[in-house]
């Protein structure tokens, strides 16, 4: 089966992120970048499924040439080929979903797996839009029953399971207060939650192999997608610094503060 996955380039959450004084964006100097962690889980899941059922994994990223770094990383993890949609500038979720739709129509995968959201904008929309535009079934927030320290995980078993007739997919979803299991027909769009798997790292031989794997270049124009944003970010600001707490002498003092200052009850 052929699986298409996404690999968005996002700021490494461990680097120190500063907002520009005018709020127009973040300061890019000294930042490290990586694959959106949810997308990395999608890549891992696709690799497991393709290992179990044979098939190709195509990884897609949208952005400037910088995204080659993330594409190469996914290729080094084991993806078969990469598609780079060359675009400079901001994109809203709608435009991203439209671009992905065109790439999917071109690549004709049986399954699309992407992160449930990217950790930079935290929108959680692209997967849902994409399923709608394609008219495919969708399963969001894919997780699995087995814990991340289970044998199933150690043996790199996929969390998404093909149905016996191989025409559908069983997906365990994370929902409030538990897990829900649903079965959807293929082709489908699945978005991944955090506990679906523990992504592998790319080994050094994997990195060497990735050097010769193809990266196909596309553009919004070639895909005939109008990417003019309908949604624009007007301003970014850092959360206000937390004020220092205070110590209270005893429980009555605490109750008094909660009641009269915090108006908690």
């Amino acid at each position: 089966m052929k699986i298409l996955v996404t690999a968005k380039r996002v700021e490494d959450p461990e680097s120190k992120i500063k907002v520009k004084p005018d709020g127009s964006g973040i300061v890019p100097e000294g930042l490290k970048y990586k694959i959106n962690p949810f997308d990395e889980i999608a890549v891992e899941e696709a690799l497991r499924l393709s290992a179990a059922h044979t098939g190709d994994v195509v990884v897609v990223s949208i952005g400037t040439k910088d995204v080659h770094e993330q594409l190469r990383h996914a290729l080094a993890m084991g993806a078969t080929k990469a598609v780079w949609v060359n675009h400079t500038g901001a994109l809203d979720q709608l435009a991203i979903a439209r671009l992905l739709q065109k790439v999917v129509e071109k690549e004709k995968p049986d399954l699309v797996i992407l992160g449930k959201q990217s950790i930079d904008d935290d929108q959680n929309q692209v997967g849902q839009y994409l399923a709608e535009f394609l008219g495919w079934s969708q399963a969001t927030f894919a997780s699995k029953v087995e814990a991340l320290d289970s044998d199933a995980e150690k043996n790199k078993q996929p969390g998404l399971k093909l149905t016996a007739d191989k025409k559908g997919l069983t997906v365990v979803r994370e929902v409030d207060g538990g897990l829900s299991t649903l079965e959807c027909s293929l082709p489908a769009v699945v978005t991944t939650d955090l506990r679906l798997n523990q992504p592998r790292y790319a080994s050094l031989p994997g990195i060497m192999k990735a050097k010769s794997k193809p990266i196909e270049e596309l553009t919004p124009a070639a895909l005939a997608v109008d990417v003019a944003p309908k949604l624009t970010v007007t301003k970014l600001s850092s959360p206000p610094a937390r004020k220092a707490g205070i110590k209270v002498a005893d429980v009555p003092a605490l109750v008094e503060k909660l009641k009269n200052e915090a108006k908690a009850f």
Binding site: E69, H73, I207
Partner: peptide, 14 residues
């Protein structure tokens, strides 16, 4: 630079 970035990302994960 490209090779090193990939190697360092993986090395961190390892």
């Amino acid at each position: 630079v490209e090779l090193l970035k990939n190697v360092i990302t993986s090395l961190d994960q390892l």
